[in-house]
Amino acid sequence: MKKTMIAGALGTVLAFAAGSALAAAPADWSKVAAKDITLFYPGVSPLEWIQKGTEHGGARALKKGETCADCHHEEAADMGKKMASGQKIEPSPIAGKAAFIPVKVQAAHDGANLYLRFSWKQPAASGAAKMDDKNPVKIAFMLESGGKVELADQAGCWATCHQDSRTMPGAADTKTKYVKGASLAEGKFYDLYQWRSGEKKGFDGHVAESRVMEGGTALVSAEGKQDGDNWTVVFTRKLAGGQGDVALEAGKTYNFGFAIHDDSAAGRFHHVSLGYKLGIDAQADITAAKQ
């Protein structure tokens, strides 16, 4: 009996170790290329605003097929300053709100799992009332495949942000982010992942007709830590996935964007990236090479 129990326990340990080995992030992230991306405070700039030529000078370039990053990658910090201060498209500026957050993004894969690592320095707190007192920090990223969502190739996650979504001025508090004409069956959606600092857990959802924070099967783990003023968060997700998950393949690129809710922020009061490309063994803004 004792031998059987020992053998069973050993088998469990070995199985757990084997499973952990299959989902082991790079041991030395310093050897993985990093992309510097500046997140900026977006104010009230929903999809409808960026398409309106009378208010957004880039609307004409957008119609010609240029991307938001083509025009704004180098000026993200300056845009954030204008909006966080209330100088532009922010009717309710928050005194002391950080205008931008520089973030290092790294990616790798092992043939079975994708590893995404985000690292940044904690901005100074604004002193404003906490919108989400459970979570001082939240970080989320979204993936879209093949440009099936209109403007996803050009505007990143902006296709989920609409003027009638909650926390927008005058909008109802019941409507979340969504995609017009969404269809999970046709692949017209965004794959969504989030990590929350206070709850210390990850969420695997999607944005289609509405935002759903659970139900995905691709997320293996989401782990974050704070070392002094520095945050590091690593997501591990299977390359494969089920409904609501974008299946990732070597040699292909995917539309990618991410956001940080800093200073216990909620809703639209976050910092966002422009739209970029994530490549799996493919040249892109961020390339996940096999380790």
Rank of each mutant, 00 (worst) to 15 (best):
C161D: 14
A155V: 15
P123F: 04
T174P: 03
R237F: 00
K64Q: 13
E186M: 02
E249L: 11
A17L: 15
A18E: 03
A77C: 11
Q154P: 06
A17S: 08
H270D: 10
M142R: 12
H206F: 14
D204Y: 03
E150H: 13
V32T: 08
A240F: 04
V149E: 00
S145Q: 10
G241H: 07
E74Q: 14
Q194V: 09
G257C: 13
Q226L: 11
G216S: 02
V234A: 07
F256W: 06
E55D: 11
H162Q: 05
T160K: 07
V44N: 14
C157F: 12
H206M: 05
G202T: 06
V179L: 11
N230K: 08
M142S: 13
M131K: 12
G11T: 07
A289T: 11
V272C: 01
L22N: 09
K175V: 02
A34G: 05
P169M: 09
A98V: 06
I101G: 01
A34D: 02
A84H: 02
C161N: 10
V149N: 03
G267E: 13
Q163M: 12
I101L: 15
W49M: 08
G241E: 01
G147R: 03
G57N: 10
C68H: 01
H270T: 08
K225I: 01
V246Q: 08
T38M: 01
A59I: 12
N135F: 10
A218R: 00
M168A: 13
H56W: 11
G251D: 02
T38Y: 01
E186L: 01
G244T: 07
D110A: 10
A59P: 00
R211Q: 14
Y254G: 06
I6Y: 07
I139R: 01
K88W: 14
D36W: 01
F203H: 07
A247F: 07
A172G: 13
H261Q: 09
T174C: 11
W29R: 00
Y190R: 09
R268H: 06
K177E: 14
K277M: 03
A21K: 09
Y178L: 05
G127M: 08
A69D: 12
A99I: 02
H109C: 07
K138S: 14
I101Q: 07
A21R: 09
D263G: 02
S119I: 11
W120A: 02
G205P: 00
E48D: 04
D28S: 12
K104P: 04
